[in-house]
Amino acid sequence: MPWIDACATDDVDEEDLIRWDHGTQTFAIFHSPEGEFYATAGRCTHEEVHLCDGLVMGHLIECPKHNGQFDYRTGEAKRTPVCVNLRTFPVKVEGGRVYVEVA
């Protein structure tokens, strides 16, 4: 699978996320409080709302519409109304850039 240059590490504040679109897919790229980067599918599994306007609290991302929550490190659904896990993608950081392995 190809590694795609998604953004600079500076583009994502700590404990926050940004939206990243690639081809027909949309992703969410996270910067954890520990300085790690993660990538998930961009839309909530409940009703397809994009997570980019949501709130990151520690390792949780909260959907901006209904407060469904996921652990963005694993994609695990943590709070209803989300019941389906979020897809995650491998990430690596090189030279101040964040790369996502897009399936």
Binding site: E47, K65, P81
Partner: peptide, 10 residues
């Protein structure tokens, strides 16, 4: 009602 309210917002 947790679910009905989610629909109300969507």
């Amino acid at each position: 009602w947790r679910w009905s309210h989610a629909r109300h917002h969507s």
